[in-house]
Design a protein around this nucleic acid. Structure first.
Lengths: 206, 206
DNA sequence: TGTACATCAGTGAACGCGCGTTCACTGATGTAC
DNA sequence: TGTACATCAGTGAACGCGCGTTCACTGATGTAC
């Protein structure tokens, strides 16, 4: 008999103060991320569903994002930054450049398996036709090339090794495993750590 | 001034004869495949769009498929069969088991690059929650295991090599390259054949 | 050979749904005088 | 200190759209007698 029953229509949050325009923006991105994780379906992350989750009406979204594409792109960039930071942190836990690459690979795969829907968007989605100049994952890849190059200068790899080519090979191998695990969970996979270490061993030898 | 102008509404095909129930079924699957290639977007392959492409009304689809899921599953199975046949054929063009695996890998990648949208559905999509017993790509994978096993019996690989594990490694590596090429076409990829041969060389050595 | 009838491949109209986006508005918050 | 006003973060209602699916039907094809 009280107002709580009308919850779906009543806004559940107070209007932001003057300078706090970014508060809702961040709440929107957080809600989008949460929705993606909970539903496990990119299609379920709609403007309307996000607005519902935040406790705001759909048009309020447009106060902070020009359209849906821009919202999704912003979420991707946020996720890419988090992914990159995680892999970099894992790589810094040792000074041995080869072991460092191995730990990066494990952190990479773990991110994918822990956040399969975000992994899909970041690495398996369609390129947004939006802004061709903005290649979102590029920074993360460049960091991998740097890590390989450090291995070369440290003498762990042959000096004529092309760090870019080696990085491509390592990346596609780890990505192949990660994305296959995500897309085909019912396949009778052998132990993940075992395959991953095998992949690393193969690639970090030549 | 003639009837042609009303094309969008007028059916453009004759009704099937008595025993020809399967004709429309095949036309539907062909149209779905064609739509997927032309639009490059799985979402564009709707019941209504397929009906439009075939020249039939939407309810006619339900004469041949229980619902949309079943239609998409049938298309997937058709594509998987084609993919499998193509890879097998490539593998049979030589008697050398190692070279045979290399040719299989190239055929695999070529299929993906030639039919990116089908590749997405077959290898990068979500598992249909439909019929858990039916793992559509399993036959193709088993053929790969067989091919590796032939290499072992021929003495090309160490006799203690586990063909299943080796097949998983080879598959995920080639899949990683293929899917990355599809998802990130703007990445400054090195020459595809070169990376692919490199991947094969790495995996077909140990 | 002719006709009544069953079969079957489709049609046409409608259903309810959720979507992205626009538009005119409201009401609280802060500011100038 | 009080009041008129501008600003700004949101609301509420509506738009047009394409979707999957259902339902009662039609009309051509074949069959039994």
């Amino acid at each position: 008999m009280n107002a709580v029953h009308a919850a779906s229509a009543t806004p559940s949050r107070a209007q932001a103060r003057r300078g706090e325009g970014n508060r809702l923006r961040e709440e929107i991105l957080a809600a989008a991320t949460r929705l993606l994780i909970e539903t496990g379906d990119e299609d379920a992350v709609s403007i309307r569903a996000i607005a519902r989750a935040v406790g705001v009406t759909p048009p309020a979204i447009y106060l902070h994002f020009a359209d849906k594409d821009e919202l999704m792109l912003a979420m991707s960039e946020q996720q890419f930054a988090e992914f990159d930071a995680g892999v970099e942190a894992a790589g810094r836990t040792t000074t041995d450049p080869v072991e460092s690459l191995r730990r990066r690979a494990h952190a990479y795969a773990r991110f994918g398996l822990d956040n399969p829907e975000h992994y899909r968007i970041l690495f398996m989605g369609r390129v947004s036709t939006r802004d061709p100049a903005r290649l979102p994952g590029r920074a993360a890849f460049d960091h991998l090339v740097d890590a390989v190059a450090r291995g070369v200068t440290a003498g762990a790899f042959p000096s004529d090794l092309d760090p870019f080519l080696a990085a491509v090979g390592l990346w596609t191998a780890v990505h192949g495993l990660t994305s296959a695990l995500i897309s085909m969970p019912r396949f009778p996979w052998p132990d993940v750590e075992t395959i991953l270490d095998h992949v690393c061993a193969v690639h970090l030898r030549g």
